[in-house]
Amino acid sequence: MFKRPHYIALVAVILLVLILFRLPAETVSRFKLAVGGFFLPLFGLAGSTQQLVAKTGNAIVPRGDLVRQNEVLRRENQQLKILAQQSQEASRENAQLRQLIGWQKTVPWKLKLAHVIAHDPANWWRTVQIDAGTRDGVQVNFPVLTVEGLVGRVSSVSSTRSQVILLGDAQLRVGAVISDTGTSAHGRETGVVTANASAPLENNMVTLSYLSGTSSVKPGQTVTTSGEGGVFPRGIPIGKIFDLRKVDYGLSTEARVALFASMNSIEEVWVMFPENNAAVSGTPSSAIKK
């Protein structure tokens, strides 16, 4: 049945795969990104086609509509400028107060816009590829969000693109907080956002685990990042409590959280990175006493 060259080819392939499995994670990640480079021309082609279609669409829009839209955006821009000035003033005041009471300074974060170029082709992972890499200052573990809320974090980076693990993937856990629950002394309840493992079809739902058994969390309350864990800054909106159930014989509570960011249709994301672009370590915006 088998001829000698067949044996050699088969054994070579199996050996190569076994070697790949045994390689260090960093080397494998580089190999992955190198092989993924074969897709770059295709991604480029798809991107240019989309741009062309968008341009054609823009050309069809009547001039009157564009002028009206421009006027609305100009007004919105002015309002946002005023808000930004106010927030700058507030952050200056915040920094002064922190200095007065001896709290650690918060690290300011910058945002970089990136486009989603590919989704994970496997059903059992939630990852996407974005068109920003090390040349744009992106590093592993940088938080990724949309205007609606948190999306995930960067898991591997090449020079031109990065892989982002999305909320809902089994590999991503995020420290989360629900403010004003009235349960604890600080009026906030903490938990960990994990994958909604029992329902992989619900892309926009995650599980908030490790809430206390006496939790008074209610559906509709907002879940934000707690800043614990050192990857995500505090206060990024994640989603709203959808429903709750007691687990571990009533010792703890688990909640389903409906995500703010729509995972089914993400096209543009913002990568957050520290202004000085140093590695993200510690809790940049959480208040830790010196």
Partner: peptide, 24 residues
């Protein structure tokens, strides 16, 4: 053999699968 090797690696390069998991 070439399709299994190349196709599997191409698939895994865009996925969070361990690299080479789709080859075998």
């Amino acid at each position: 053999v070439t399709l299994a090797f190349a196709g599997g690696l191409l698939f895994d390069s865009l996925s969070a699968n361990p690299f080479g998991a789709s080859v075998l």
